[in-house]
């Protein structure tokens, strides 16, 4: 099992090319977050994605689902054949997260849905006294949605210490820069004021992410945790980085080769 970010990005590129899929840059910004969660943090049974003792990773930002698919492929939860058939008629994997797929916990296509559902799970687990954890990835663009703030208000009020929200803060949304469309800063102050223990870090630095996930301060102060992961849309392939056109652009043989060459750089 190789959950190295570079390897995951290769899977995403291959998959996006096979399915002629858009949303490559949306997936690239949260690769390290998913990698660290599955590799270092979460309790997850690869041979049974429905294991009732598992921790939950809810991808509210469904547009980044290829990053999760890539992890689940490495973990053996989703078989190779489904990647070979990506977007073909009758295939398993949609372009946005749907919970009929093994390992996908919430429906993440319509933004602002996954977070309240994930908070409901955290509430239910807390009521049972379970030590299972719920992690939820939202996009910074996604948090335009009112349901996000409804959910955060609830999680903060009910002191859901088993709940961690990770903001994939790549600074871009579908049609432009977040600062220009609907400014969210100061984001950290917003989460703090909603009752979250808030950590900001480089969302592509696996060590810092791991530290942020392992930080237990929120339990001491009896708050849910927010990790604002400062990321870059398209991270990992130079010509995609911070270029919003890769929210919409499909790979062609030329850009496929160029992207793969960058991701394979330094390998034997």
């Amino acid at each position: 099992m190789n959950l190295e970010p570079k390897n995951l990005r290769k899977h995403i590129i291959n998959m996006a090319y096979t399915g002629s899929s858009v949303h490559i840059a949306c997936a690239f910004s949260l690769v390290e977050i998913c990698s660290v969660l599955y590799d270092k943090i979460m309790t997850f049974n690869n041979s049974n994605p429905d294991d009732p003792t598992r921790d939950i990773l809810a991808l509210s930002k469904g547009h980044g689902v290829m990053a999760i698919y890539a992890c689940l492929k490495e973990m053996g939860v989703i078989e190779q054949e489904h990647f070979d058939k990506y977007f073909t008629d009758g295939s398993l994997l949609h372009g946005l997260g749907e919970p009929r797929v093994p390992g996908i916990e919430v429906l993440g296509g319509s933004l602002g849905h996954g977070l309240p559902v994930a908070i409901g799970m955290a509430l239910g687990l807390k009521r049972e006294g379970s030590n299972r954890q719920v992690y939820c990835i939202v996009g910074d663009g996604e948090i335009n949605e009112g349901t996000i703030w409804e959910g955060l208000l609830f999680a903060g009020h009910h002191k859901l210490t088993n709940f961690t929200v990770i903001v994939d803060a790549n600074g871009l949304q579908a049609m432009g820069e977040i600062d220009e469309i609907l400014n969210l800063e100061p984001m950290g102050a917003k989460f703090k004021s909603f009752g979250f223990h808030t950590i900001e870090c480089d969302g592509h630095n696996v060590k810092l992410l791991e530290d942020a996930f392992k930080d237990k301060t929120h339990e001491e102060v009896q708050k849910p945790k927010a990790i604002i992961a400062r990321t870059m849309k398209g991270k990992g392939v130079s010509f995609m980085e911070n270029d919003n056109i890769w929210h919409y652009t499909r790979l062609n043989p030329e850009t496929l080769d160029k992207a793969m060459a960058e991701l394979q750089e330094g390998e034997e």
């Binding site: 309240p116 409901g120 959910g151």
Partner: peptide, 18 residues
Amino acid sequence: GMIEQAMIGLAAGLTQVG
């Protein structure tokens, strides 16, 4: 609270965990 939309999500999440 008056968070009707999130309330449906909360109910769905609660139901999903039993």
